[in-house]
Nucleic acid binder design. Structure first.
Lengths: 291, 291
DNA sequence: AGAGATATCTGACTAAAGTCAGGCATTATG
DNA sequence: CATAATGCCTGACTTTAGTCAGATATCTCT
């Protein structure tokens, strides 16, 4: 660890506290102390159980209780006993509370937009921010199943096609490729999985079935900012597990030698190379795995 | 500005506040409230005037005054009237105050090291952090003259040579190149300039004179994380201005077409291409500029 | 059913941060 | 040289955050 590294880290911390601190204090400015605003926003973000919010915000139980009472008196929050355990309480926003939460959200978004519009190289800045966020918070990347036509799925696929176009010497045209139908990637025939970090999709994989015991893995992609963190491996494991659920016995996939990280991953995880099994012009390597 | 951009920014803010906030609260743990610790650290970081500290930390004048009194009673700080304006006051650390400041510094460094050691891909993480810090805080990049054998200058040059080795098809060996003597880059013959962001060097340029009216620009380098922010242009302007100071009338430089950004910069800023003027094996383009 | 654990609430505190009006030198300005 | 402005200080507040010791209701386990 060279001594410059700590200086670089601290330079980063200084640059960022100024901006991010401003984002935090934007929680003020709606006539409510920070503590109460944080609780309101935690509830708005989906945290319902009082104990969970308390742990998340690191609050003393007495303080938490008083903040909740305050929000209740403002008419923003209601609490009720937990249906399965009446010692615990669950909080939820009232109509007015939801409006107030949305006002906080709008404030945060406006701050973000203002900063990004002010910065030169916003694209590049966002990529660097993604990398920092993902490496620091890598435990927060979750794999979830979604419809292949959903908004986050389409965002992943667009990025995937753009990357193929950039990496294949002759470009990439999805119309020339064996593009699976969306219906083949929805249960019961198949599945579509995405990796999500804090609401932002960072990777995807499709399991394409045709109703029989053989299915294909298609469209494995991971955001460059999330590479090296084991996301592709987790996506593949989740796809295999979904395949077993669907009664699939054999998985196949095709790929291109330009995608060296993907090839290495397949070889590491029990896939064996087989002969060409389709006439898609893009792939030059074919793999199979028995489940 | 797509809506995902604000989500990505806010993901970054969340990931970072957890870590950077921890760095901030490391200011506690020395038995002093945060406010007093922040004032002490501001003085230690070189801020002397009370009004300046007040503005920097955003404190009320009454609060500021009390915090200063507290630090004085602890024997960590002394204040004196400003020599040019006795209404203003300047604060400085006592011997004990300096020791206490250094203890805070050590604490911050330890936090930084702990985080970087915990993170996978620390190198890559630091590069992304550099990019974020530099784009956000680009106004804080300062150009300064230094000895070419100083620690930061050597760090820049090592990075410069490493980059040439990576970008030249046949590699780069400094021993084969026309390497200028350090003494030719020190006044009165020449100069060496570095760009510094918050204590970390991010770029350099050498002005190599031989005592006559002609000098050469050598070793222009900018940290990849700081590119696109106008640092190279500012370094070149500072070098030209130093050359004028030294009575130089004509500047020359050699470069290689693999360094396309540099070539573009020279063409943009009034340099004209001339014939080869040395037998260095690496350059393939030669430029001149009259001052 | 009873003992102990758990989750939240209430009351009574303290510490820290922040606000505001006025005071006192000192300096700038007409 | 009088007047206004500036920079800092002091005293008297309020608000916010945080702590801690019970109280209360509920659940788990035997």
């Amino acid at each position: 660890m060279d001594s410059l590294a700590t200086a670089r880290f601290r330079r980063f911390a200084r640059a960022v506290t100024a901006e991010v601190g401003a984002l935090d204090t934007s929680f003020l400015g709606r006539g409510r102390p920070l503590g109460a605003a944080r609780v309101l926003n935690a509830i708005g973000a989906g945290r319902a159980e009082v104990g969970e919010i308390r742990a998340y915000l690191g609050l003393d139980s007495g303080l938490m209780s008083r903040l909740l009472r305050g929000l209740e008196e403002e008419g923003l929050v209601t609490t009720a006993p937990h249906p399965a355990d009446a010692r615990r309480r669950v909080a939820s926003l009232t109509e007015a509370g939801r409006r107030e939460f949305e006002a906080y959200e709008a404030l945060s978004d406006a701050r973000a937009v203002a900063l990004l519009e002010r910065a030169s190289h916003a694209d590049d800045l966002l990529r660097a921010m993604d990398r920092v966020a993902l490496v620091l918070g890598q435990e927060a990347i979750a794999i979830q199943e979604t419809d292949p036509t959903s908004e986050p799925a389409r965002a992943c696929l667009a990025a995937y096609y753009a990357e193929l176009a950039a990496r294949f010497a002759g470009g990439f045209d999805v119309a020339l490729s064996c593009d699976p139908e969306a219906v083949d990637m929805v249960r019961p025939r198949g599945a579509f999985l995405i990796a999500v970090a804090d609401g932002v999709p960072v990777g995807c994989v499709g399991l394409t079935g045709r109703g029989g015991p053989v299915a294909e893995i298609k469209r494995l992609w991971v955001d460059p900012a999330a590479r090296g963190l084991g996301v592709a491996k987790r996506l593949m494991q989740a796809a295999e597990s979904a395949a077993r659920d669907l009664g699939i016995r054999t998985l196949r996939l095709d790929t291109n030698s330009a995608l060296s990280e993907a090839m290495a991953l397949y070889r590491r995880s029990g896939w064996v190379e087989i002969d060409r099994f389709n006439d898609d012009p893009y792939p030059d390597h074919f793999f199979e795995k028995a489940l």
